[in-house]
Amino acid sequence: MIVVNTETVAGYRVVEVKGIVQGNTVRSKNVGRDIAAGFKNLVGGELKGYTELLTESRRQAIERMMSQAQQLGANAVVNVRFTTSAVTSGAAELYSYGTAVVIQPLTQG
């Protein structure tokens, strides 16, 4: 399945629009990570735990969105957007949404 954040897909033509598909997830890391982040805030630097948290959440949200698109019979999702929101301390909600479409490769000439 092709997932892009542009409106079109290079080399393909959109033949059918299936509608909006979405996927969301709320994840948190363990307490240890939160405490480690607190210490890291004294010395500065990258918070690897939270970076991982965001990456995992993003993958999961995309997967859920893709499975929804598959159920609709689409073979691509275009114009994908992400938003995050604050639910509770130390957790991240990631929401991804896009338009499920059916695309066809452009024939040459």
Binding site: I2, V4, T6, A37, N41, G45, T51, I62
Partner: peptide, 22 residues
């Protein structure tokens, strides 16, 4: 100028969290 017959485009994403110091 996409390459004709090239690989299908795909989504890439990255995350970064930086902490301040005291």
């Amino acid at each position: 100028s996409p390459k004709p017959g090239g690989k299908a485009p795909t989504l890439v994403h990255s995350e970064m969290v930086v902490a301040s110091d005291y």
